[in-house]
Amino acid sequence: MKPPLLEVKGLKVSVAGKQILRGIDLSVAAGTVHAIMGPNGSGKSTLSHVLTGREGYRVEAGTARFCGKDLLSLPAEERAREGVFLAFQYPVEIAGVTNKYFLKAAYNALRKHHGQPELSAGDFLKHVKKKAQLVEMDPALLNRDVNFGFSGGEKKRNEILQLAVLEPRLCLLDETDSGLDIDALKIVARGINALRDPERAFVVVTHYQRLLDYVEPDFVHVLAGGRIVKSGGKELALQLEKEGYGWLEAAQA
């Protein structure tokens, strides 16, 4: 059997002296979709940030391996080049750099890492336009500054476009559904579904069940108090939707 794409073991993480993750175990195989759900403050965002190399987090124990490689020892850009992608909850606005330019810089950094020659401007544009179509994004957004003045829906769609262009193997989606109306949510979900692939895995971090109506998970994990307290199939998401998180906290107490 192939090793899992992502293997997290006993991961304990603190921020500014406060322990947030208290021992996470998670194994994600290629081709699967995992949902991580949990109340606010349970450590969902910390998990996605620490896996993608954001500074300011202290790993106190545990490991995270990606395709067998020690992920936690790599700087953020190396992880991205290896094939780990984070769709941000709050995509950052960068006035002064066009979307196209930014995507090209990122795409060529990846190609260079894999020993491939940089793509010419023309070939790159073809590649991006195809992907923009796939995620139903107006190509005009490519010429605008990165996320600058984008609506909430456009920002999230832009994250999915980046995902489509960079073709990562592991996609972490951090609260991608937050701030979206139902139409935008459907478009984003269609984009994600279009990118599902036997070689690619998704970890969908979300507070609410509604994205999972459109992106069907294979596994659902409930994160509470820095631990995965329950794992199950997609029916677990429905149970959480119906009963909220209260019963979990009651069970923990």
């Binding site: 993608t52 190399g53 954001r54 500074e55 700087p75 953020a76 850009e77 992880r79 991205a80 080049r81 992608f85 984070l86 941000f88 995509p91 950052v92 960068i94 930014f102 810089a105 990122a106 950094a109 990846l110 890492h113 980046q162 960079l166």
Partner: peptide, 8 residues
Amino acid sequence: FYLRSRGV
């Protein structure tokens, strides 16, 4: 971080 998380 946003840029680095894209491989830049």
